[in-house]
Nucleic acid binder design. Structure first.
Lengths: 162, 162
DNA sequence: TATTAATTAATTGCACACAATTAAAACTTA
DNA sequence: TAAGTTTTAATTGTGTGCAATTAATTAATA
């Protein structure tokens, strides 16, 4: 497989393969994107039973992680951290506001911005949430070196993608 | 598990903790899940302009990758490969059927199963799609060793998650 | 064989994601 | 300062994902 990869990536692109030639690069198992896509969904699913006890979805959990660190953030700042736009965040944050986990208010000095801040009920979730990362690491049963190597490589990929 | 080791190795010392953040494992940057989640979305977004030329979404592209390999598959088999259930696949496949890329029919020997097979328009997408993996590799500008290492590690993670 | 269990898709309802557009506020600059 | 530009959220519309349920078919078994 690695040889094929080398050959194809080094091939002269002015002489493309005929379309009926089996192309190993088109095989699902040779893609990078698929294991990334699938592992992301499966890992989110692994969080599900733990988050369900707190009534949280996974992206809501990410928002809380940031708010536990920063107390308050604008929608724009949340979007920069999470790489999400207002089309995703606005309805998500409204649902979290209804649950009284956070508050949304316009910034007094700049009415364009909306400041998201923790409410007591949102603060209160931090205690029970503290155990989630450990529980997940246990469930993964992944060697630390592998965990850290993978996280590092994913962060590199993320840098390349921005 | 080995909590002390985990804490020491997973905390990112270039970003000192606020005094009121008791658990480094709760910081967004120390999670594995977030770069996985974000990189998956960003990589899908990188495919977008290439897929848009063919009128495809990313999961539709994955379905075609499998059909180009296997000619026909049941919904169940597609779901096993892609780790998706009928709740996702049925409407997705109906949209692809409307575009005449594929056909859905009940298996004659087992009326529970639905066989998905390529139509000419779906076959015809294979030629133009052939260049997508290479174009994406170019765009990533990722060393081949890193590409393969990351893919291998993601496949390991995927195995752990099943 | 009759009944029960298991399998397979489809359906329903909800929550993301995200492109594209809109609207309000703040900034720039002529 | 007036006009145009930029910034920030919200809105709209489409397409996933997925849990839970339903319905039809097949398999298992008493």
């Amino acid at each position: 497989m690695q040889l094929i990869y080398v050959l194809l990536t080094m091939a002269d692109s002015s002489h493309p393969l005929p379309s009926d030639t089996p192309n190993p690069l088109l095989r699902l198992e040779n893609q990078l994107c698929f294991p990334l896509y699938a592992a992301s969904r499966m890992l989110t699913k692994a969080y599900q039973p733990l988050l369900l006890e707190l009534g949280l979805t996974y992206p809501q959990y990410l928002v809380l992680l940031l708010l536990w660190e920063h107390q308050e953030l604008t929608v724009k700042e949340l979007g920069e951290h999470l790489l999400l736009d207002s089309g995703t965040l606005t309805p998500l944050l409204k649902r979290m506001e209804q649950r009284q986990w956070l508050r949304r208010r316009r910034a007094p000095h700049d009415e364009r911005s909306v400041i998201i801040s923790l409410e007591p009920a949102g603060e209160a979730l931090r205690g029970p949430a503290c155990r989630i990362p450990e529980q997940l690491l246990d469930r993964l049963g992944m060697p630390e070196a592998e965990f850290i190597a993978l996280r590092t490589q994913l962060n590199h990929l993320l840098t390349r993608l921005q």
